[in-house]
Amino acid sequence: MQAAVVAAVLLVLTACGAPAAGSSAERSLILATTTSTQDSGLLDELLPAFTAATGWAVKPVAVGSGQAIEMGRRGEADVVLVHSPAAEEEYVAEGTAGRRLLVMHNDFVLLGPEADPAGVRGARVDEAMRRIAGTGAVFVSRGDDSGTHAREKSLWEQAGVTPGAPWYQETGQGMGATLRVAAEKAGYTLSDRATHLAQPDGLALLVEGDPGLLNVYHVIEVTTRAGERVQPEAAAAFADWITGPDAQRLIGEFGSARYGQPLFVPDAGKPDPTG
């Protein structure tokens, strides 16, 4: 009896204390971004520096590029950092977004089993895609409407192939999970270089350096036209900061110490390769 009362009191006390843990007095913004920026660890590097520099705390929500853009479209985020140029342009064309600025790039790579049954090693990417389809070798797709998935679909289109079952398989999961599925199934897959470097997956790097494999990240400001609770000043602060010298330096250095090469190339102010 007494024990039950004590337990109840403890529970209630804990309940009262809990909300205090999350409510920070500082201003915070919501950043809708892609899993690749989170899974690679880049956000962990950038966001504390941004908060220190501007006083804005950040709530990063890491989802696929498609969902991130959708959050911007609905005004559920203040700023968007994604790598899906075609979808971005469509979103900006709708007129509710603010500035769209080039931030950085890395590149996609085509990975596959060391044995390379389709013989794509060193080929051009559109030729490689055709050979995979032609031999019916397993190809594992993200299938999650992410930037990587969008790029993969446009590569099939350029190669003139309509992928389908049984050799074409979709995981519906993030990059890391998809890499592991591809490795287990000895299949091919398209990945961003950063995730491939960050995760030892046992897949061989077969095609790289093709202009069609460039992976470009933009920051897009969300405006109050998308929703009345959007904070435009937060969006501007983030967009200005991530394209500014400090952030660009951090981006350029990120990954060198761990992987021997940077994972991203800072691009702010350069001409936009995606037009």
Binding site: A15, A18, P19, A21, G22, S23, I30, K59, V61, R74, G75, E76, G227, E228, R229, V230
Partner: peptide, 20 residues
């Protein structure tokens, strides 16, 4: 809890309170 949702005004999304 979405900003555009009925309880958006509280700004609770992505807080421990929302998880509770």
């Amino acid at each position: 809890l979405w900003r555009s949702g009925p309880l958006g005004g509280f700004g609770l999304l992505y807080t421990p309170t929302a998880m509770v």
